[in-house]
Computed example of a mutant assay.
Amino acid sequence: MRTPNLLLAAVCAALLTPASGAWACASCACGDPTLTSMGGEQPFEGRLRLSTMLRAWGHTEGQQNLDAQRLRELRMDVAVAYAPRPWLVLAVNLPLQAREVRDVSLARERGWGLGDVDVSAKAFVWRDRDFSPDNLLSVVGGVKLPTGPRLAARDGTALGLDAQPGSGSVDPMGGLAWQGFRGSWSFMASVLGFLPTRGREDFRLGASVRTSVGAQYQPSTRWAVRLGLDSRAERAADTAGVSEEYGGGFIAYVSPDVLFSPGMDVVVQAGVRIPVVNQLRRVSSTPIAQLSLAYDL
């Protein structure tokens, strides 16, 4: 029994249900007050969530002072997720990206614009009970579409692939996700596979498997802390069937986050992804800084 959760739901319902309407907070509707980021929310029919996320990251390929090429990106994702059924969540994500590529000769390319749209669906195939479940198992599927424009420099020549916000490829993905709730604690785990296709200049990113596990402690309804471990195992990219000299291998990040709710149905999340294991071939990665805002309508 999760008496505090049921009590919170009852209080929310009493406070938010006027005589002429039936509006209720998202925590009341799903029966659990756990603060969740985009993609981790519990489903209920009609749930609509908007979010935006800022990310800053980079990596360097090759050897310093020899053939190094540095990529830096600042990215803002705008996403919407809607649950047309209690067991189904549909989502669309649109990125806005600013990229800078600089090689060892100090030659530099900059590109910014809309990137490739992601569309996805999450189907909850099992839950231990209908209202306020302790365990949720879902199947995830989606595809990245080649919606990003091809950018050109001032002289009209196309920017290099690394400076482009879009790849020009259709990249499907799929996998499984689990969520568990135990009082003030919640847990999650997922495994997703990505299978990129060929895009511009006959370039194809390598297939990859990405995993994520995490635990969250929430001592109050206003804030929570989370610690996770994210990993990616990938094949090297190739151009026309010839493998690239860089990339391919395995990388893992430790991922601490803080979540805060400044008001009803609003969640702010700040965190960083710190690379702790890097077995990528001739690629060094920076930490990934993240800041997001989610709002349930």
Results as ranks from 00 to 15, higher is better:
R55P: 06
L280S: 05
Q216G: 02
D171E: 10
I251M: 03
R282L: 12
T239C: 00
Q69W: 11
R99I: 07
A189P: 08
P196I: 01
P287A: 02
Q179I: 08
L192E: 11
L114N: 07
R210V: 15
L54Y: 12
D238N: 01
G228I: 03
L15C: 10
K144Q: 14
V104D: 04
S169R: 05
S167I: 07
R235C: 04
F124R: 09
S27A: 15
G183S: 03
E73M: 09
D257I: 12
R2A: 12
W178H: 07
G175K: 04
A158I: 11
E244C: 02
S132V: 08
R154D: 15
W23F: 13
V11W: 06
R154W: 10
S220N: 09
L6K: 12
R235M: 02
G228N: 06
V268H: 01
A24H: 11
G148Y: 03
R75V: 06
S220P: 10
H59M: 11
G228M: 04
F194G: 14
R281Q: 10
E100C: 08
C25H: 02
D128P: 05
A270R: 06
L7N: 12
S167L: 08
W23A: 15
A14H: 15
A189M: 07
L229S: 07
L6V: 13
Q216Y: 01
D130F: 12
S255L: 08
D202A: 10
Y217W: 14
A56C: 13
G199K: 06
A22V: 14
P219W: 06
A19I: 14
L145C: 03
R85A: 14
L7T: 15
G174L: 02
V254F: 00
D202H: 07
G174W: 00
L137E: 05
F131C: 05
T286I: 07
G193D: 10
R281L: 04
F44P: 10
L50K: 08
T3S: 12
F124V: 13
S220G: 10
P146V: 07
L35C: 02
R70N: 11
G180Y: 08
Q179M: 11
A123V: 12
G183Y: 00
Q42S: 11
T52W: 00
A233L: 13
V213S: 05
T286Q: 09
G115P: 01
M173H: 15
V89D: 04
E245T: 14
R129V: 08
A289T: 10
E73T: 13
T52L: 04
D171Q: 06
A83V: 09
D162A: 13
E109H: 05
C30W: 11
L297N: 05
C30D: 14
V266D: 04
T221S: 13
L35G: 05
R198L: 06
P86K: 04
R154T: 15
T239F: 01
Y217F: 11
Q269E: 08
L159A: 01
G183W: 02
D265T: 04
T52K: 00
L16D: 14
A236M: 03
K122M: 10
G241H: 02
S27G: 12
P149H: 01
A153L: 06
L74C: 09
W185F: 04
S231G: 11
L106V: 14
L192S: 09
R99C: 04
L229Y: 07
A207R: 13
P149D: 00
S190W: 02
T221K: 15
S51A: 11
V80I: 08
